[in-house]
């Protein structure tokens, strides 16, 4: 079983893991993964219960009130949500 590369997984999940946490986490993850590695090989995919076209939503537009949604923003600027600009090329 491949070793658990905490740094690359943490990067994918946008989590930072402190050095102190890393050792404990590595042990925990290894135990969990060993426990999970006992699963046998996968069967090919089969269809499950599917939705017919008629069960889908009708194409009707409705107005919604954006005010409470904008109020929920941790950092608002006029009527837009904001993020820091570093590293974004538009």
């Amino acid at each position: 079983m491949a070793p658990f590369d905490i740094d690359s997984i943490a990067g994918l999940a946008r989590l930072t893991v402190s050095d102190g946490e890393k050792a404990a986490l590595a042990e925990d993850m290894a135990a969990i993964l060993a426990f999970a590695a006992t699963l046998p090989e996968a069967d090919p995919y089969t269809e499950e219960a599917a939705l017919p076209l008629s069960a889908l939503r009708e194409d009707e537009a409705a107005d919604s009130d954006p005010a409470p949604l904008l109020c929920a923003a941790p950092k608002l600027r006029e009527d837009a949500f904001t993020v820091p600009s570093g590293g974004i090329s538009l």
Binding site: A13, L15, T16, L69, A73, P84, G86, G87
Partner: peptide, 25 residues
């Protein structure tokens, strides 16, 4: 949960990825 539209948001990030990592961690 990344600090952009609702919920907690970490301060002092210089880029979106930093904001996400910092907020989530």
């Amino acid at each position: 949960y990344d600090g952009v539209r609702y919920g907690a948001r970490a301060e002092g990030a210089a880029s979106p990825d930093e904001l996400f990592c910092s907020t989530r961690s």
